[in-house]
Nucleic acid binder design. Structure first.
Length: 902
RNA sequence: GCGAGGGUGGCCGAGCCUGGCCAAAGGCGGCGGGCUUAAGACCCGCUUCCGCAGGGAUCCGUGGGUUCGAAUCCCAUCCCUCGCACCA
């Protein structure tokens, strides 16, 4: 579209002028700074970005959400911590370095400067004095310090394991960094198919906390269900039992099972090809060795039921029988113990294997009597019966339920209850340059020795271009004296996974410049947890688990007091799409924030995003939507400006005598009540993060104010209150326009620092609103049905007070005979048959009755809303109490006045 | 396969926890009217069907159930999205 560029604009505001102006003012006044001595502030946090150099709409949305919320809380009078920083280590900087012949640090810093500028242009209210940059030694020295503490606490291990290796990034990847696409495992960053390599690496033993990480999820009701579910899946808790089987090889092999109740039905034993014993049995160069080799070292897709008999037998501890030992590919090495006893009758995979290898199938479970399956229908020869049930063919245990049997068998077979998790320890080693050096030295005599705290940080050597790990090539840097014995030693050349950086950055914001510790324990204990965390769902199983792990460890190391979870409430924001698909720079399907903001302003972008959908939902970026936000903001500004200029309710605007008082007082009152009601609604919606609903309420109020202005000469106080309220309610979302309006309206100080409007709804508002809406609706319907196109006079007659009293009585009374109850009162009896018949009506609708206003209140409420009806129908409208209109009052009921249209 | 979330009027989307005021907010689109030289913006309506006074019928994926009463609660079933997935 062609923007308003070049065309004169007599109305509205110029965002290119207004926005930088207020950004400067906020900055100068330190509006968003929070002092260190603030008491338990609201901690509102957006996931800090990797500084790629350019903001995209996803960022804008993320920060628009946290900023709106933070500004809202601040206006409510709370101290608010809303910081920002840079997750600035990571591979892209190295890639850029090799592509453009720059060094990662310089490139990263340029990107940060660029991103920061864009954030400032958006008017985001961060406390920049708390900015944190993870690639600075002042930050990452604490990664190293914490690493050492973890090491001392026994939470660091160096082990050899088969690891995911990305040949393109030339580094290992944690399981979390491996994605699966069409069956192949690929690197999350570059989509290269990963390989597996046996390597010695550094691990954090996050599995020590697996159970707590899992269990606490149940209580974390400030988190979305899907994220909690993803974490549950990821941790993969499995409660079962382990039992040892004696093999004819002389080995005792431990298995893990969740179905110990089926042990009598075990007819073979299976080892995964990667199991230690399988490897031993394969040494002979026979078909066992061949199978293990094919399973382990080739790309061959082995059949589900493939396997090989080892010639060995295992003793079933339950039956004493010898069952054959197979090596089978369907048995996974890293699940359970990598070995299992197989019960073909009650496990589908075991069943399939047994059929293929002609192994007997013994039923030991039958459906419980209360199951809706007929035991006669079960044929385990056909298919496994996998449900729990009642034991059979299990010696003296027949008749026990599955659950009972599992409980008993643990003791009987000398096993133990075990909790297994699929969560693995966290491999944090990366063979890359742009990360935190792991603060260890390898000494030929002392082994791995930690770098003493006083020598931290271990800084990075100068960057050099090399195919492998640049740290490995930095010979001078590598060579160091062993802290233990003083002899020649070598620095560890692995750097840390960048998820280490982001696992505690939210604590560094508390005391970003502290030089004696990663964070101030007292203050962090008071300020934490983060009250509201907002970011993308993609971090559900990585960053969000690691941060939880770190927080628990820090608590156990006494670095935190009383905080075991970092994020109280979590919001995962939806995607900003374009034409139904994700914005993607690779396809050019993007709207870039910078040019958009230059043309329409930051407020428009923020307003549109928050107005378009609830934060957690995806939405489409549309030109119409953006424009409508822009139009709205211009319009509100104009309204405020007109009022400020005295064009609406100032002196000399009176349309006629008496419009400002008397008969018009009720109109002013109506508007005043709507203003208060809007503040109440908007507050509720802000609390619940439904900015779109809050904005809807504001739009409706603005529309009402316009009608008010057009219908009469507004009361200056009422109108001002309306415009001021709109300004305040808009301030968290469109802060620059709001400041401009506030300024025009003569507000004191900044609206960003102003008090939030009173959020108490007017008394009886909901009932009143319903009455007014219903009545207006009824008038329309009658006029329509009766075919009255151009009504002259509309009479609205409220039901007599006694009907209201009877209605109230019906609401309260629990008497069976309502008619009798009502007629027992003289005040109703005097109305004779009419009262009896009304009581009968009440009796009929009894269960559906809702509170109503009194007759006088109804008259007042309708009187206040009368102008809207007059305006709509261009007719004379009267609101009457029943005494004034005995001819119509009979038809009226509480909440439903009689209506006469002529 | 397992698990989580969801299926609402032309479209988007609220409501569902805490059943009744729900033919179901709001927006978009469409239609009519006002304002305007006109367009835009703005304002007022209409937008399931029937009805010459506020009434009635049908309706919230499908089928049952609970209840005086169900979009809302329960059960079953189908479909969609996401996550995990040869999990012992």
């Amino acid at each position: 579209m062609t923007a308003g560029t070049g065309q004169q604009r007599e109305r509205g505001f110029d965002h290119t002028e207004v926005e930088p102006k207020w950004q400067r003012v906020w900055d100068e006044r330190g509006t968003f700074r929070i002092p260190d001595d603030a008491e338990d502030p609201a901690y509102v946090l957006a996931m800090f970005p990797y500084p790629s150099g350019e903001m995209h709409m996803g960022h804008v949305r993320n920060y628009a959400i946290t900023d709106a919320y933070a500004r809202y809380r601040r206006m409510r009078g709370e101290a608010v911590l809303h910081p920002m920083g840079w997750d600035s280590f990571g591979l892209p900087a190295e890639n850029a370095a090799s592509e453009r012949d720059v060094d990662p640090r310089g490139w990263t810093m340029d990107c940060i400067a660029n991103m920061k500028e864009q954030m400032e242009i958006m008017g985001l209210g961060f406390d920049w004095e708390r900015e944190v940059t993870t690639c600075e030694p002042e930050y990452f020295r604490w990664n190293q310090w914490l690493f050492t503490r973890f090491y001392e606490a026994g939470l660091v291990e160096r082990e050899g394991a088969e690891l995911n290796w990305c040949p393109s990034c030339e580094t290992v990847l944690a399981d979390e960094n491996v994605n699966t696409e069409g069956g192949t495992e690929i690197c999350w960053r570059c989509d290269t198919p990963i390989e597996h390599r046996d390597l010695e690496q550094w691990f954090f033993t996050i599995t020590d906390y697996a159970d707590e990480l899992y269990e606490t999820l149940d209580e974390m009701d400030g988190w979305p269900d899907n994220v909690r579910e993803m974490q549950r899946n990821w941790i993969g808790k499995q409660a079962g039992d382990s039992v040892a089987f004696e093999l004819s090889t002389g080995d005792s092999v431990e298995i893990f099972t969740t179905r110990l109740d089926t042990i009598y039905g075990a007819t073979f034993f299976a080892l995964s090809p990667g199991h230690g014993l399988a490897q031993e049995l394969a040494d002979d160069g026979d078909e066992v060795a061949d199978y293990v080799h094919r399973a382990e070292h080739t790309d061959e897709e082995l059949d589900q039921t493939s396997g090989v008999f080892t010639g060995e037998y295992a003793t079933n501890p339950a039956t004493g029988e010898e069952v054959p030992v197979y090596i089978a590919d369907y048995v996974l090495e890293d699940i359970g113990t990598g070995a299992l006893y197989a019960v073909p009758a009650h496990d589908e995979r075991d069943h399939a294997f047994a059929e293929a290898h002609d192994i007997p199938i013994e039923q030991v479970i039958e459906p419980a009597p209360d199951a809706d399956v007929d035991p006669e229908d079960i044929d385990v020869g056909e298919a496994a019966y996998t449900a729990d049930g009642v034991l059979t063919n299990s010696a003296e245990y027949d008749g026990l339920t599955s659950a009972e049997a599992r409980e008993r068998f643990v003791d009987v077979f000398d096993g133990e209850h075990r909790i297994e998790h699929s969560l693995r320890d966290w491999c944090i080693s990366r063979q890359r340059y742009w990360g935190t050096p792991i603060p260890f030295v390898e000494c030929p005599d002392c082994g791995y020795v930690p770098v003493p705290d006083e020598e931290l940080p271990v800084e990075l050597p100068e960057f050099i271009q090399t195919t492998g790990n640049p740290l490995d090539a930095a010979e001078e840097w590598k060579s160091v004296a062993c802290p233990g014995c003083g002899g020649p030693a070598t620095r560890e050349t692995d750097t840390m996974d960048t998820f280490v950086d982001s696992s505690w950055y939210f604590l560094r914001y508390v005391s970003p410049d502290l030089e004696t510790a990663p964070f101030d324990t007292d203050r962090a204990s008071e300020w934490m947890p983060v009250d509201q965390y907002v970011g993308g769902i993609e971090h559900a199983t990585m960053h969000l688990i690691y941060s939880r792990f770190f927080t628990k460890v820090l608590k156990d190391l006494d670095l935190l007091d009383g905080v075991r979870e970092p994020f109280k409430n979590l919001l995962t924001q939806g995607m900003v799409r374009k034409e139904g698909t994700a914005m993607s720079s690779s396809t050019g399907n993007v709207v870039s924030p910078r040019p958009f903001v230059e043309e329409y302003g930051a407020d428009t972008a923020r307003m549109f995003m928050l107005n378009a959908a609830q934060p957690e939902k995806d939405f489409d970026w549309t030109e119409e939507g953006a424009r409508s936000a822009h139009t709205f903001l211009q319009g509100v500004y104009d309204l405020a400006a007109e009022f400020a200029a005295g064009d609406v309710a100032g002196e000399g605007t009176a349309k006629s005598e008496g419009e400002t008082g008397g008969e018009h007082a009720v109109i002013h009152e109506y508007v005043a009540r709507e203003v208060a009601a809007t503040a109440a609604t908007a507050t509720e919606e802000f609390e619940a993060f439904r900015f779109n609903h809050a904005l809807q309420a504001v739009r409706e109020l603005v529309s009402l104010l316009r009608r008010y202005r057009d219908a009469t000469t507004p009361d200056p106080d009422v109108f001002e209150d309306g415009v001021v309220t709109v300004t305040k309610l808009l301030a968290p979302v469109a802060p620059h326009v709001a400041e401009e309006m506030w300024d025009k309206l003569g507000g004191e100080g900044l609206v960003a620092e102003a008090d939030w409007p009173d959020a108490t709804p007017p008394e009886g508002y909901d009932i009143e609103r319903r009455l007014v809406e219903n009545t207006r609706e009824d008038v329309r319907e009658i006029a329509d049905v009766a075919g009255i196109d151009d009504p002259e006079r509309i009479r609205i007659v409220v039901a007599p007070e006694w009907k209201h009293a009877a209605h109230d009585l019906a609401l309260e009374s629990d008497a069976d005979d309502l008619v009798g109850e009502v007629m027992g009162h003289e005040q109703f009896r005097q109305h004779g048959n009419e009262a009896a018949s009304f009581a009968k009506d009440l009796q009929t609708e009894r269960e559906a009755l809702t509170p109503a206003l009194s007759a006088a209140e109804e008259v007042a409420a309708l009187e206040r809303a009368r102008w809207l009806v007059e305006r709509e129908f261009d007719a004379t409208v009267t609101v009457e109490a029943d005494d004034d209109a005995p001819d119509l009052a009979d038809d009226a009921e509480p909440g439903r006045p009689a209506i006469r249209i002529d």
